[in-house]
Amino acid sequence: MLYELGNHRIELPGQAPKSTPDDRLLLWQDGELVSPDDDWVQRRSDWSSDALVDEEFIGLLDGHAYYTAQLNGAQDFPRLGLRDIGLRSETAFMLAARARGLLDWRRQHRFCGQCGQPTQAMTGESAMVCEPCQLRFYPRVSPCVIVLITRGPEVLLAQGTRHRSANWYSTLAGFVETGESLEQAVHREIREEVGVEVTNLRYQGSQTWPFPHQLMLGFWADYAGGDIRPEPGEIADARWFHLDELPEFPPSFSIAGYMIDSYRRFWASA
């Protein structure tokens, strides 16, 4: 769900270009982006190679090569969280999400899960390989459905137990199980989380969500019946809200906020 895609040229070739001092770097420390000048991107020429650990090629943005790495040592720099990046730029959020995913994958696949031997990075693609087993390990992507349930000028929003302190309501979401289609996952998750039935699913778009490695696939769905029954331990509250009286909800850089805003515009123009 990159709405800025028309403003940029983004390429993800498997083969990294030859390194230059003009390369852009996304540097991480304790799960956040290092930002000494309140900027989310650094120049390679400003950092020594000794300062970088687990370097990975991200891709090309407008012809410039972007890399990511962990910062070596316990230096104390200002930092930015991933959500801070999302509020600045969707393109920056996409690159930071890819960078975070690549580093997490590299850290979590240093050894083969089948035989326990060390893995090696492959040339030409993002993959770790176990030479004895010839198994390849690729960066993990976990598909999730995220759904805005609509009933005319009303939407059903919920507050998760883990996010109650933020005091906002959002759309419903859940992981796609092995063997499920996206549509099956929508019906199951909605039934489990709030006890209602839906119909007329309309795909709205997708967004990478690196907390830690989700791919969110968004839908609008019409309410078909049933009383709201929040899932104990998962949903603190769920209710219908009129589009003119919406509660606090996620920012528009997130697919949840985007779908709510889009439906509000759609209904206003109907």
Rank of each mutant, 00 (worst) to 15 (best):
A185L: 11
M216P: 00
R106G: 01
L95M: 00
S126Y: 13
Q207H: 01
G179A: 07
W220E: 08
R100C: 02
T178A: 15
G225C: 12
Q214L: 13
S170D: 01
L217R: 06
T178Q: 11
L135P: 02
T178S: 05
G124W: 01
Q120I: 11
Q159M: 12
S165K: 15
E183H: 14
C115F: 02
D227K: 15
C112P: 00
F137C: 08
I149H: 03
P153Y: 05
R162F: 13
I190E: 02
M122N: 04
V186T: 10
P139S: 12
T199N: 10
R191Q: 14
Y138D: 04
M122T: 09
P118W: 10
V147G: 06
C115H: 00
L156T: 00
Q117K: 02
S165R: 15
Y223C: 11
E154A: 04
V176M: 08
V176D: 03
V129F: 07
M128V: 05
Y203W: 15
A99D: 01
Q214I: 05
R188D: 00
C112T: 00
V176W: 10
L95I: 01
Q134L: 12
L157D: 00
A185V: 04
R191V: 07
A224C: 13
N167P: 12
E125W: 06
N200H: 14
